[in-house]
Design a protein around this nucleic acid. Sequence first.
DNA 1: ACATTCAGTGCAATCGTTAGCGGAGCGTTG
DNA 2: CAACGCTCCGCTAACGATTGCACTGAATGT
Lengths: 339, 339
Amino acid sequence: MTIADVAARAGVHKATVSRALNKMTEHQVNQATARRVRKAAQELGYVANAVARGLRTNSSMTIGVIIPDLTNPLFPPMVRGIEHYLAPHGYTALIANTDGDDDLERAAFDSLSGRRVDGFIIATGRMHHELIADAYRRGVHVVMLNRGTTDVPYSLVTGSDAAGVTAAVDHLVGLGHRDLVHLAGPKDFTTSTVRSGAFLAAVGRHAGVTGRLVPTPALTIDAGLACMDELLRHGDAPTAVVAGNDMLAVGVLRALRQHGLRCPDDVSVVGFNGMDSTEDLNPPLTTVQVPHFEMGTEAARLLLDDIASDEQRSVTVSLPATLIIRESTAAPRRAALVA
Amino acid sequence: MTIADVAARAGVHKATVSRALNKMTEHQVNQATARRVRKAAQELGYVANAVARGLRTNSSMTIGVIIPDLTNPLFPPMVRGIEHYLAPHGYTALIANTDGDDDLERAAFDSLSGRRVDGFIIATGRMHHELIADAYRRGVHVVMLNRGTTDVPYSLVTGSDAAGVTAAVDHLVGLGHRDLVHLAGPKDFTTSTVRSGAFLAAVGRHAGVTGRLVPTPALTIDAGLACMDELLRHGDAPTAVVAGNDMLAVGVLRALRQHGLRCPDDVSVVGFNGMDSTEDLNPPLTTVQVPHFEMGTEAARLLLDDIASDEQRSVTVSLPATLIIRESTAAPRRAALVA
DNA sequence: ACATTCAGTGCAATCGTTAGCGGAGCGTTG
DNA sequence: CAACGCTCCGCTAACGATTGCACTGAATGT
C-alpha cells in the first residue's frame, strides 16, 4: 500500500498523489483530480508512510520527552498535557525515563536524537546540566519543563512556585504558627532554589516568625521520612512543615506516625504539587495545587512554535498554583506554642 | 553527519561502514577495518539515522503502547516495565492514551500504524473489540496487557486475578466475615469476568457465607463511591467489600466516611492492584498486589519474540498476585454479625 | 495572430541506509 | 599449477515519499 498504488488506481502520477494528500500542497492540484485521488486512497486504506516522509523532509513529527520517572504521579498529567497539544498537530511524543541517572539520560537523548525527533521537552533540569548545554550548542530545540537550568537560556514552563509557597506560609502563620520548617529538596534543582527563596521571603514578612531551611537529598517519601525523623529525634520539631513536594510530605506524615505524633494536632504539614492521592491520605493533605496538565500543553505549544519558526526563544511561563486547604493544617496546640 | 562522512574519514565505502557498525554484519568486515570505522564514527559523533534505516529495513524499532489513561497509577509501572525490556533491545515505545474512547483509540492505532510501529501492546481490551479483531486479520503483531479479548487469540499478560480474589475472600472469611460484596467493574472487561467468577467460586467454598456481585459502570473513585453509597442507603451494606480495583476501594472508603461509618470497624475493604498510594490511605488499604512492572516486561518480551520469529503465538501469562494485609480489614463487630 | 502567463501535471533526483551481487586477492588442495 | 573456496569490500539498486524543474495546453493581453 504505497503512494504508487494510489497513483495507479487514480490514474495519475505519484507526485500528484503526494500533492493531493498534503494540506500544504493540495491547492496545486485540480479539485476534481484531488477528489479522485482521495477516493482512491480511501478505498485502498492507504496511510502515508511516516518513515519515508521523515527521511525526505528531515522531520519526524515526533518530540522527545525526558522525565525522571513516569511512576512519580507528578509526571503523567504533564505527559498527557503534552500529548493533548501534540496530537492535533500531528506530532507524537517519545517518552524516556532517566531515574535521575546521567548516563541513562545521555543514552535516552542519543537514542531519541538518532530517531530524529524534532525537539525535546526536558523535565530533568538541574542548575548546571552538561547534556542540556550541549544540546543548546548544537542548536537542538528544547523546552524545559518544571525545572530549569541556569547554564543556557532555554524556555521554561513551571508552576508559580513562589506564589504557592508564599500562600502556604501565610496560611500557616494565619493559623498561629510561629516556627516553620521548609523541607527544601536538592540544592541543584531550580525549583528548590525558587521555593526556598520564597519561603524565607514569606517568613521574613511576618514579625516574630522563624523559618528554617532543611535540604533533603531527594524528593522522595524516604527522604521526607528520614529528614523529619532526624528533626524529631533532636527535639527540634517545628509546629508546621512546608514540604518541598507531596512525596516528602507523605514521608513527614509517616515519621510523625512512627513517633506517636498526630497531624495536624502536633504538627501541621503542607505538601506541594497536588497529587491526586493527597486527598485520601491520612489526614487529607493541605497542598499547593500545580496545574501539571496545563504545564504540559504549554511546554508543547512553546516547542512547536519554536520548531515552526525555527527560532529559539527564551521565555519563562509560570502557571498559577493554588493552595488547597484540607485537614493536615490547623492551629498549633498551646503546648507547642509555649515550647 | 551521515554514513558517507564516516566512510570518507575511514577511507572505505559506505556499505562497509554500515556493515562495520551493525552487530549482525560486523563479522563480514575485517577486524582492523571495523576498528578504523568505529573510530571514525566515534570522532565524528556519528549516530545512525533511524528514519533512513527504518525505511530501508521496513522496521522502525518502535512499539505502540495503547492504554486508557496514563494518569491511572496502574499504568505507569507497566509502561516502565515495557520500556525496561524494550530499551536494551533497541526498541522504543510510543504511548497513546484513549480514555476508553473508541474513536480516539482508532485514531491512535492508525497514527501509530502510519509510523510503522513493529507491533502493539494493548491494554484497553474488551471482550468484543473490533479494532483488535481488525488488527488480527491484518496480521499485525499484538500482545494484550492486563485485559484480554475473546474475539481473537492474541497473547495476554495479566496478574493472577483469580488467585488474588480467592486470597482476599479467604482472608475476610478467616476474620469472621459472612456477608461479602464484590464491586465487579464493567461486564465487558475480561478482568471483571475473571474476578467475579473467582469471587463466587471462593465464596461457594465456604459454608454459610454469602457473596453478592455488584457491577460498577467504571473502575473509578466516583463509581466506587456511588455504588457503595447506594448499598448504604438501602441498608444493604455487607460487613466486607472486595473492590474490583483500588480506585473503587478509595470510593468505598469515601462513601463510608460520608455515612459516618468507619473502616475497618464497620466495614472491611480490600482493594485490588496494589497502587503505591494505598499504603498511606486512611486507613492503609489491604489490597491484592499485582506485579505491574513485570507484566510490562513480560508483554514486551512476548511481543519481541513474536516479531523476531514472525509468528503469532497465543499464550496467556498470568503473574502471581499477592494479598497485602494492612489496616482496612479486621474482624467484623458483633453487632454486624448479629444483624 | 502571436506572445505571454498560468494552472495542472509529469519527470527524476533525493533523503540515509541496507543488501544482493560480484570481483579482487589470497590460500588451499589434488 | 589450475581450480576452487573464502574473506573482504565496492558498486548499485532499492525503500516510499517530497519537490524543483520542465512541459503541456488553454486562456489572456495587445
